[in-house]
Design a protein around this nucleic acid. Structure first.
Length: 419
RNA sequence: GCGAUCAUAGCUCAGUUGGUUAGAGCGCCGGUUUGUGGUACCGGAGGUCACGGGUUCGAACCCCGUUGGUCGCCCCA
């Protein structure tokens, strides 16, 4: 490769072949399932004013403070390539009058951008599927959303992933718990890992997630959210869990599960591969394939009226890794032109077959003698060879399967082509 | 932001202790063979050994730097 050829941007991917098929399978399955739950398709801008994300996610979060692709446009306005979907959808809910549709169920998918060190299952341009319910305060919304996520994973053929569920309580519960955690960990700060000492100031909830052996001894006795939940918050969570049971969604309680972004309240969840499973191995160190929760406080941070909402997003690349490589669809017909003057017969025939929804490849270049072999290597259901007999086109048909309908279609196409 | 590791043909990889003109398989192109045939054989194209310095009589190989890939920490989907 010439050194003049520009290299791809770090953390971007060119997805091809079986991997691209897996990617498409995830998106197609999501589209099918979201229709079953009547989530409406929306298309969102890839960039927004920077403040949309800064105010939604929280200025101190890693995503906002060091991972956003922000730039000034030619008018001098600070814009940001979206690092997630929720903030933009919330903005649209407020600016486009979507309140009139509340409770509104929407779904979308597309590229997101975060400036991170790439590694397995983590890219700078990555892709998510996303589902949100806006304007629904009831636990039933959480249940339906999770039931959809669960069904999606099952329909993708992923069975070794489990819903880990927690509640962060309402705003007051969350703050009280947070304060108690800070008090508890501050007392032993000297024995914590450097990272957790830093978290103590910025994001104390995250200490509960620490994998550092120095932190582990203190985790078990740390204050639990349950002790700080208001009566309403407890009742809400109980309704979610009983709803999940009724919906047949398996879940486990994960008391230390917190979400990184500031806007989460009440229900928080992640679908995580079971330990030692094939999915866990396929994902490497990335554990979450689908995550989300309730974000009742978000609309207010964008200047809107208090509006309850809940949603999730899942990484398409990560789901595709669990789905594994998928074969491209088999070619229906390969036409090998073994007599140069009759290549137009093949073109005409291909057109006829394609109009009838059959996939066709025409092999009419390179060594005449090797064209049949080339066609055979495409592994088609049928090979049609076009040769010459006394100046007239003549055909040979070879098949590896029995398909009378396709067989007839080929003969019809042939008759059509030679006339 | 931190750490580990890697970079040779379009792809997967060999390449001895630093020693002539850098190799294989696959793929691609052509020829021969076969002649309802995915075979076999022969040939061809394709390389500034990631890039830039250094050491040396001599560097794909040793040293330094840069860029990029991969994996992990952090964070997250």
């Amino acid at each position: 490769m010439s050194k003049k050829t520009p290299q791809p941007v770090r953390g971007t991917q060119d997805i091809f072949g079986a991997e691209a098929e897996a990617f498409a399978f995830v998106v197609e399955t999501f589209e099918r399932v979201r229709r079953l739950y009547r989530f409406r398709r929306v298309e969102m801008p890839v960039f927004e004013k920077t403040e949309v994300f800064a105010r939604s996610l929280g200025e101190t979060t890693d995503v906002v403070s060091k991972e956003m692709y922000s730039f000034d446009d030619r008018g001098g306005e600070s814009l940001t390539l979206r690092p997630e979907f929720t903030a933009g959808i919330a903005r649209a809910f407020l600016t486009d009058g979507w309140q009139q549709y509340a409770p509104l169920k929407v779904a979308t998918h597309g590229p997101l951008f975060r400036y991170e060190r790439p590694q397995k299952g983590r890219y700078r341009q990555f892709h998510q599927i996303d589902a949100e319910v806006i304007g629904a305060a009831e636990p039933q919304a959480d249940v339906e959303l999770l039931a959809m996520a669960d069904q999606l994973l099952k329909e993708l053929g992923i069975h070794d992933v489990t819903l880990h569920l927690n509640t962060l309580g309402d705003g007051a519960s969350r703050e009280a718990w947070r304060a108690a955690l800070v008090d508890y960990f501050r007392a032993v700060a000297g024995d914590l890992s450097e990272e957790s000492q830093e978290r103590l100031e910025k994001n104390p909830l995250r200490i509960l997630d620490s994998k550092d052996p120095r932190d582990k001894p203190f985790l078990a006795d740390a204050p639990k959210i349950d002790a700080f939940l208001s009566e309403e918050a407890s009742a809400f969570f109980a309704a979610v869990t009983s709803g999940l049971d009724a919906a047949g969604v398996k879940w486990v309680r994960a008391e230390s599960l917190v979400r990184g972004l500031d806007y989460y309240r009440h229900t928080a969840f992640e679908f995580i591969p079971d330990e030692g499973s094939a999915s866990a191995a396929a994902l490497g160190s990335q554990s979450t394939v689908l995550g989300g929760g309730r974000y009742d406080g978000l609309m207010e941070s964008l200047g809107g009226a208090p509006t309850p909402a809940v949603g999730w997003a899942a990484g398409i690349e990560r789901l595709a890794m669990l789905v594994g490589a998928r074969e491209e669809e088999r070619l229906d017909v390969a036409i090998a032109v073994e007599a140069e003057p009759h290549s137009e017969v093949a073109i005409s025939m291909a057109r006829h077959l394609r109009n009838n929804r059959y996939s066709v490849e025409v092999v009419s270049t390179g060594s005449v003698k090797k064209r049949f072999d080339k066609a055979a290597k495409m592994n088609p259901a049928y090979i049609v060879s076009v040769s010459d007999e006394a100046g007239e086109p003549s055909r040979g048909i070879r098949s590896t399967v029995t398909d009378e309908v396709l067989d007839d279609a080929i003969k019809t196409a042939w008759a059509y082509a030679i006339n």
